[in-house]
Computed example of a mutant assay.
Amino acid sequence: MKCIISVLCLILMIGEILTDNNNATQNSIGFPEIEENESLKNKDDRQPVFMPATCPPNELYYPGDQKDDWICDCRPAFLYHPGSDSCWSAYQRGPCASDEYITLPKDSVIPVCVKNPCGVDTYVIFNGRCERFGSITACAHLYPVVAAVGVNATTLEVDCVQLNLQSRFGEDRPMPPNQHLIPCQRGSKNSVNNKCDKKNN
């Protein structure tokens, strides 16, 4: 019985290897995500999809306005770094030296490495103190809203980010109040490569 199962597994693996990229995309398993930035939604309200077999790490498969128009790009609050051709979480080490983190200057589309004032990856200055990403105690003042220290996907600044405690399957996700929306996600691969809609910038 073990031999039959091993042979079946081998056949499935060979089939996957021989499948070309288009078929791999069509047959890939994807997990729907919610577009956090309302102004980036497409006209048919199609959602970005997490497809690890199709997109590189830290990227989602984003829909365009045409039925077959899809492209891989950075997740919200991640920055595209051309030197490494990868997306990295803002205010974390990424491709930088051990005492630095990656951030996006306000006057640039290319992220840079800067000295982390806290000296430890995943710690950032928030309200004058070094706080760890994901800390809910630093955002306790927002109770009953459950929030944690993170990167605001719209402004790319360290902030209290409302946590989504709901399932990704069929349930609405609440949007943080007073979120200022921008038409093109700063720091994304499309932004760096000048593929954003200029009239909305």
Rank of each mutant, 00 (worst) to 15 (best):
Y101Q: 03
A147E: 11
V124F: 03
S98N: 11
L181E: 15
A148S: 14
V151I: 15
S191M: 11
S108F: 03
C130N: 05
R173S: 12
S135F: 00
N127E: 15
L156I: 14
Y143S: 15
L181N: 12
R173V: 15
K106P: 01
P177H: 10
V192H: 01
Q162R: 14
L181Q: 14
G128E: 07
L163K: 02
D159L: 02
G150F: 04
G94Q: 06
L104E: 00
C130G: 05
Y143Q: 13
P95D: 10
V120L: 08
E100T: 08
S108P: 03
C96F: 04
Q185S: 13
N164V: 09
R132A: 08
G170M: 07
C184W: 03
Y123Q: 13
V151K: 01
L156D: 06
V114N: 08
Q166I: 12
S191T: 13
D159R: 02
S191Y: 09
P117R: 04
L163I: 12
C118Y: 02
Y143L: 11
S167C: 11
N116R: 03
C113W: 07
T154W: 01
G119I: 11
G134D: 09
G94N: 04
C113F: 09
P117F: 07
K115L: 13
A153K: 01
F126K: 02
C160F: 05
Q185H: 07
D172L: 13
Q166N: 13
G119Q: 08
G150H: 04
S108V: 05
L156P: 00
Q185N: 10
G128H: 06
T154M: 08
R132S: 12
K106I: 06
A97C: 02
R129P: 00
V151D: 02
V109K: 13
K115S: 11
V109W: 02
A148E: 13
L142Y: 08
S167P: 01
R129A: 07
D107Q: 05
A153D: 02
V149S: 02
A140H: 10
E131V: 11
A147K: 04
L181V: 12
T137L: 09
